[in-house]
Design a protein around this nucleic acid. Structure first.
Ligand SMILES: [Mn+2]
Ligand SMILES: [Mn+2]
Ligand SMILES: [Mn+2]
Ligand SMILES: [Mn+2]
Lengths: 220, 220
DNA sequence: TAAACTTTTTAGATTAGTCTAAAAATATTT
DNA sequence: AAATATTTTTAGACTAATCTAAAAAGTTTA
């Protein structure tokens, strides 16, 4: 139906829209897609003709309902494949994204529905991101960043903000894995770094930078 | 490494080579790939420059060792994905091929090795075709076509010659499924049709055309 | 508000893969 | 061995997606 490239543009624009609320400009898309602004302009025109987005020269783009639907379907496929790779094939969570970037473009509605079933209709992918349902419905997460917790507060690690392989590997090597309980013991006033305790055992010192990129479910 | 299209050409040429032993001509490739001879000539030149096949103008092509290796890897990926779709996602054996045509082009050695492991290192795909191993080694099947059996002989259904969806659906609806025992009761002299008994129960009348397209492992 | 800077668009090229139509080579018939 | 038919290759064009360089529009600064 839609090409590999079209799906990637729609997904990129969708993710930019999630953050900014304003219409998305050419350069922002170019940076995400890793291409030149001139190429983005060309593709935007094409997507506009196909009614996937609304475009006004020099004013950026906004996805139409159709464009949003296609983008969400692609995100759904991406996250289901990541879950498959992690849960069934034992890929580490830093390795799944690149392969899912390819798999997300396989065309078959039946495939993705059966995969969803096979995985037990998971609600979140290996990075804690919500998986859209068959009809595009997205469960909203009530996660907060670890850096929002105060001393003495407890959370369960539930996701990440930064998805880079470097960061994910760092977390894994420190047992900072999805599902683990994390207790904030001390917040150092000087640099806002966090001293935390994981599942009653290990004590770790986390920079504020790290704390800002870990999502937790806050516990009472 | 190699494009979607290049892999499809190599696979097509490989399959033609398996049958004919002579060098493969342009038209034959065009028919398999469903394209025009002129397009095949263009692609052949490209593959020749990349040392994937040897090409002499007007004399057809022969795969190099490298070309054969890439083709076999693609066949391996195709059949492993078909096995996954059938065994894990419960696709019927007539539905797996088209989706595997897409999946076979996903680039990741680690993915295919882990998939192989996850599936328990299967030796054959859902149509009874052998799955090449990690190093390209192909176990040779000692299957014969059902039409080679004589009256009173027993076989186990092990594969198909014709892979069309129409034929596969026909077999399935008659319980002619991989692994079932099949006994040749009568061969009708008039039209060489076969009266067979499946697993001690059902008696079926199969045209010679059908019998020629079922592979069986012959039992004593 | 005009100059300077930034962003976006256009113009023109490139690459991969495909096509049609015509030319060239090979194969088959007479 | 010609004539005819078939196959293969070439020539030139097209589409999707990309690029560079230059023009145009928009924004900021003085
Ligand atoms: Mn991802
Ligand atoms: Mn993608
Ligand atoms: Mn197949
Ligand atoms: Mn294929």
């Amino acid at each position: 139906m839609y090409s590999f490239t079209e799906e990637n543009y729609l997904k990129a624009i969708y993710k930019l829209q999630e953050q900014s609320s304003e219409s998305i400009n050419t350069n922002a898309i170019a940076i995400v897609i890793q291409t030149k602004a001139a190429s983005v302009t060309d593709m935007i025109k094409k997507l506009s003709e196909k009614k996937l987005l609304n475009y006004e020269k020099y004013k950026g783009v906004v996805l139409t309902e159709l464009g949003k639907k296609v983008a969400i379907e692609t995100v759904r496929k991406h996250r289901l494949w990541e879950t498959f790779l992690h849960n069934k094939l034992n890929f580490t969570w830093d390795a799944v994204h690149d392969i899912a970037e390819q798999l997300e473009h396989i065309q078959s509605q039946e495939l993705i529905d059966k995969l969803d079933d096979f995985l037990g209709f998971p609600s979140h992918d290996p990075h804690g991101d919500p998986i859209p349902g068959k009809n595009g419905e997205m469960k909203e997460s009530n996660f907060v960043v670890l850096s929002d917790l105060r001393e003495g507060e407890l959370g369960i690690i539930s996701g990440v903000v930064n998805h880079s392989s470097l960061f994910l590997k760092h977390l894994e090597s420190n047992e900072l894995i999805l599902g683990k309980r994390i207790l904030v013991q001390v917040i150092v006033a000087f640099d806002n770094s966090f001293q935390v305790k994981i599942e009653g055992k290990k004590i770790l010192q986390l920079s504020n930078e790290v704390a800002r990129n870990i999502l937790v479910k806050k516990m009472k």
